[in-house]
Nucleic acid binder design. Structure first.
Length: 195
DNA sequence: CATAGGATCGCCT
DNA sequence: GGCGATCCTATGT
């Protein structure tokens, strides 16, 4: 039950970090209630060289500025005007790499998670998309964007779970058709048993 | 100031 | 599997 340290996120291979985040626990503490889920799907965004990345080509805007901070920072932004998407910034300060968390398996605070989702019981869809998991954990752009990930209200823990490499599937990323050839890169990682 | 488009979801058929 | 919702962000005039 260790909080992942800064060193985990400050490494320079965002694809490796995306793989290694599978099986870790994304935890929030909002209004005194702790909710958590095991990460089961991630995508790597490889900074300035990656056409799918918001910071492609070194683009700096008010929104992307957070991506240039050091590893272990939360990058939360609003997508389609509705969904808050949660990313972990990785690599050294000045290098805008990030991992999008796309799915979790609810583990703690189930009642609160169901209430936030407007569901009455757990299902495969409770927190199985990048927009639904942030709703389930109460992650909000205004409250969490730019925060460090080492203490409440938001952090990532290692609960000793190991995901066997042969159960990890690598596929192209979702919803980035605009990225040209980079749309084909196998930067999405999924725990097979969760699909 | 006006516009286009988006790292999605959920409901409908 | 198709489509509308919904509004922020970035960009251009």
């Amino acid at each position: 039950m260790n909080t992942l340290p800064r060193d985990f996120f400050n490494r320079d291979d965002v694809v490796t970090i995306a793989r290694e985040l599978l099986g870790k626990y994304l935890v929030t503490e909002v209004d005194g209630v702790r909710t958590a889920g095991m990460i089961t799907e991630t995508e790597a965004y490889d900074g300035v060289r990656d056409r799918a990345c918001h910071a492609y080509g070194g683009k700096r805007t008010k929104r992307t500025e957070v991506m240039y901070r050091q590893g272990g920072t939360a990058y939360v932004y609003l997508c389609y005007g509705i969904h808050h998407l949660f990313n972990v910034v990785t690599n050294a300060e000045g290098t805008p790499d990030a991992v999008l968390i796309r799915s979790i398996r609810p583990a703690e605070g189930i009642d609160t998670i169901l209430e936030r989702r407007g569901h009455t019981k757990l299902s495969a869809k409770t927190a199985s998309g990048p927009g639904t998991l942030t709703q389930a954990l109460g992650i909000h752009t205004q409250h969490h964007n730019g925060l460090d990930l080492f203490s409440p209200p938001i952090l990532i823990e290692d609960h000793g779970v190991t995901i066997a490499p042969n159960t990890i599937e690598a596929t192209p990323r979702i919803g980035i058709d605009y990225a040209g050839e980079d749309a084909l890169l196998p930067y999405r990682f999924v725990v097979s048993s969760e699909q």
